[in-house]
Amino acid sequence: MPEIIIDGRRYKCEDAETILDVCRRNDIDIPALCHHEAVEPFGACRLCMVEISHPKWPGWKDWVTSCLYPIQDGLVVGTSTTRVRRLRATVLDLLLARCPNSDVIRELAEEYGVEDTTYQPRDDGDNCILCGLCVRVCEEVIGVSAISSAWRGVTKEISEPLREPPPDCIGCAACANVCPTDVIKVTQSSTHRVIWDRTFEMYRCKECGKAHITKEQRDWMIKKNNLPENYYDLCDICKRKVVANTQKNLSLI
């Protein structure tokens, strides 16, 4: 079993782990905005930079994204050295210029001593940091690929196809839930959900009308898991009532 040294302490790790996995498991704080356990690491936000060296590399150091760097036996990792903090501060300085109104970025930046960005902040910008987590969750977890990143360089953005309401979207709102800066807006009422400018009708309970999921999500899950057509007809409250009724009948025998 390989062992690595993080901030002077020895930690045991599994073979195919990354540095961030080991740190998260041992409660070592490394900031990361684009990382989510459900999807493959991507290395977009560059905030999880750490310093690495190895006894076999005398006098040699490197600064890498810990979410992407696979561990190797004997690796020496520094998670909060001066250089690492300076690198993170630079990244946060840039992120703050991109999203001056984001509370998440502002709080993180203050933690690293960046009060105000040294660059020209974007005036008209939203809070999107282009980490692509929404796109990856939609593709890898949900399996729908309703949204993607469009254009390149300074004009890059996360977008629906042709900037129209996405036809493949099932309205599950997973993208909005994982978004680190809460850019994706969901408007929810008891009958409808609006996300990515598309209005979804909720699939409501046949008994009481309570809704958890959209009609599109229900169709997609029935198709994916080979479920009977009436599987999602009841809400949680009505399902509990059915179970309670069965238990009542059993108790009365």
């Binding site: 989510h36 949900i142 999921i213 999500q217 899950m221 509990r240």
Partner: peptide, 18 residues
């Protein structure tokens, strides 16, 4: 850490205990 909040489980539990 892995949950994406799609509510599939809430709709999927046949006993309504999620």
């Amino acid at each position: 850490d892995k949950c994406v909040g799609c509510l599939s489980c809430v709709a999927g539990c046949p006993f309504g205990n999620m």
